[in-house]
């Protein structure tokens, strides 16, 4: 469309391929290879083994994986619930409140995750609420960090849904609660599941806040990966990261399946 002659496209494609390889493909390929490598002191790994993957699925690493999955599930669910609630409530709120609260709800994007963690440490290591040292502080940190994204996803979907659906439902005799339950929430379900997927993906990979607040008995997989790297066990770290990616992918697939099974919504034009 831009370049009309076929011969002129080749150099562009070649450049694209080169950059793509270095920037996108190589890091991923190297990570997979490292997860399976016995040793790596040359251009190519010295040999292959599944031992690292095995160790990533046992003992402490396995425990971390479970912690990560539970954290992502709880934080994701809570974030979608709070985010959806906020989106729906603010849509009906007066303009000044909507603008102010919208800015506030997007704020966690701008706050460094490390600072979110530090803030929770400072605030909840003292009365009235002592959460430092419990798993709750990790869950709260994750909730705060993914809330913006789930709120943004749901509220932007909400603005695309015409008011007339709710109006027509009301005209047919549905009380506001019924309109919410039978019309608005079902129509938002695709956005809510997208928000959940995003929240889970972000939560599974979170390090900044977690590393500030985690108690010994609630260590997420990314933190474990960091301790492994720190101790020089980089192959184990690569394997654990690969497991983390795999688990995230499976979680996202399940979420996608759930949302597609529940509804076949495509908002009619």
């Amino acid at each position: 469309m831009l370049i009309w002659s076929r011969s002129a496209r080749w150099p562009i494609w070649a450049l694209f391929a080169a950059v793509f390889l270095v920037i996108v493909a190589a890091p991923l390929a190297v990570l997979v290879a490292a997860a399976l490598a016995t040793e790596w002191n040359d251009v190519l790994p010295g040999g292959f083994t599944v031992a690292h993957l095995g160790s990533a699925l046992t003992g402490e690493n396995q425990a971390s994986l479970l912690v990560s999955l539970q954290t992502a599930a709880v934080a994701g669910l809570a974030a979608v619930a709070v985010g959806t609630w906020a989106a729906l409530a603010l849509a009906a709120a007066p303009r000044w409140l909507r603008k102010g609260a919208d800015g506030l709800l997007h704020l966690p994007v701008a706050i460094p995750s490390v600072v979110v963690g530090l803030g929770l440490l400072v605030a909840y290591s003292r009365p009235p609420l002592l959460l430092n040292g419990t798993r709750w502080i990790v869950l709260i940190a994750h909730l705060v960090l993914v809330l913006s994204f789930s709120y943004a996803t749901v509220s932007s979907a909400l603005t695309r849904i015409d008011d007339s659906y709710a109006q027509v439902a009301a005209s047919l005799g549905a009380r506001p609660a019924l309109v919410l339950w039978r019309v608005r929430l079902p129509m938002l379900l695709p956005a809510m599941s997208a928000a959940a997927a995003l929240a889970v993906a972000l939560s599974m990979g979170e390090v900044g806040a977690t590393i500030m607040v985690y108690p010994p008995d609630w260590r997420t997989l990314p933190v474990t990966v960091f301790t492994l790297t720190d101790r020089g066990r980089t192959f184990d770290a690569a394997a654990a990261t690969l497991i983390l990616l795999g688990a995230t992918l499976v979680a996202l697939l399940i979420l996608g399946r759930v949302s597609r099974g529940r509804t076949t919504t495509g908002v009619s034009p």
Binding site: Q167, A170, L172, A174, P186, M187, T265, S268
Partner: peptide, 28 residues
């Protein structure tokens, strides 16, 4: 609106996309 009992048809129809035709008609 839900206590007025009027029949309303809007421009783009606003048929509920997640409900069948029968469920749409039976909504009220």
């Amino acid at each position: 609106p839900h206590k007025r009992g009027l029949g309303v048809v809007v421009q783009q129809y606003a048929l509920f996309p997640h409900l069948t035709v029968a469920d749409n008609i039976g909504f009220g």
